[in-house]
Computed example of a mutant assay.
Amino acid sequence: MAGPSRRTLARALETLADFPEPSAALEQYLTPPEIAAHICHQARLQGNLDRWVVDLGTGTGMLAIAAALAGAERVVGIDLDPDALAVARQNAARIDEAGHGTLEWLRGDVTRPPLSLTDATVVSNPPFGAQRGNRHADRDFLETISSIASVSYTIHNEGSQSFVESFAADNGATVTHGFSAEFPIEKRFEFHTDTTQTLEAEVFRIEWA
């Protein structure tokens, strides 16, 4: 059955609430609705929503909710921050009046996910590692993804292609698709000097062995 168009999906996601008090240490930035819509639309076209979909570091629930709206019947969002999970639950309630499969929220450390899966589809917007102490944060996410996923869609900072491809190859996996995307960020922390900043991001689809 055909799912919503990418544009329809993005419009629905634009209604979701942002972090009320984002944490710089956790690099809490709202995943852009356009990117989330693109990822989950492609996941549906690739037939990757017919199993458990796991959103690692779900934050406001953007990718998990996008997956549910795109047709996934079993979705779980995992995050370390209980306040973020509260926002995710509120966002899900906001647009889930008709019901969109099973959408669950779990508090847990991404490096020690509170679930046991080996054939999941993972969607994730890991920290870009921009904050001190967060260097290689996306590597920690990929380590976990490699243990629970058969396919994943992840968002990374510009210039990450060689790192992601190397990590995948070292784990017997293959990067099958990649595309660039603009990642707009509103001013939210004191070290931000511009009202709006647009980062260049890269999105990769990986098939894991």
Rank of each mutant, 00 (worst) to 15 (best):
100 H>D: 01
54 V>L: 14
81 D>Y: 08
103 L>E: 02
73 E>Y: 00
77 G>K: 07
54 V>F: 05
93 A>E: 14
63 L>H: 11
69 L>W: 07
63 L>Y: 13
88 A>R: 06
79 D>Q: 13
77 G>V: 08
54 V>Y: 05
78 I>Q: 06
100 H>P: 00
104 E>D: 13
73 E>S: 14
69 L>K: 12
61 G>M: 09
74 R>M: 00
100 H>E: 01
104 E>G: 00
68 A>C: 12
81 D>Q: 07
61 G>D: 12
89 R>K: 13
96 D>E: 10
86 A>I: 00
88 A>C: 04
94 R>S: 11
75 V>E: 11
52 W>H: 07
56 L>N: 06
55 D>F: 04
68 A>N: 11
99 G>W: 04
53 V>E: 10
73 E>L: 10
55 D>V: 07
101 G>Q: 03
76 V>Q: 11
63 L>E: 14
53 V>H: 10
80 L>C: 03
67 A>F: 12
103 L>H: 02
58 T>S: 13
72 A>V: 09
57 G>T: 03
53 V>R: 10
59 G>I: 01
52 W>G: 00
68 A>M: 08
66 A>P: 14
92 A>W: 15
98 A>M: 03
93 A>Q: 14
65 I>D: 10
58 T>P: 02
52 W>I: 02
92 A>I: 00
75 V>Y: 12
63 L>T: 14
74 R>E: 09
104 E>M: 09
88 A>W: 03
81 D>M: 09
54 V>C: 08
75 V>T: 12
89 R>H: 01
89 R>I: 02
94 R>E: 03
92 A>Q: 10
87 V>G: 01
75 V>W: 12
100 H>R: 14
93 A>C: 04
70 A>S: 15
54 V>W: 04
60 T>R: 06
104 E>L: 15
60 T>P: 09
94 R>A: 12
90 Q>F: 02
97 E>I: 06
99 G>N: 10
59 G>M: 05
102 T>H: 07
71 G>E: 07
97 E>S: 08
62 M>Q: 14
93 A>K: 08
80 L>H: 07
59 G>E: 01
74 R>K: 14
103 L>W: 03
52 W>K: 03
99 G>E: 11
69 L>F: 09
75 V>H: 10
78 I>P: 06
60 T>G: 07
96 D>S: 13
89 R>Y: 00
96 D>H: 06
90 Q>N: 07
85 L>C: 04
103 L>Y: 03
65 I>V: 15
58 T>Y: 02
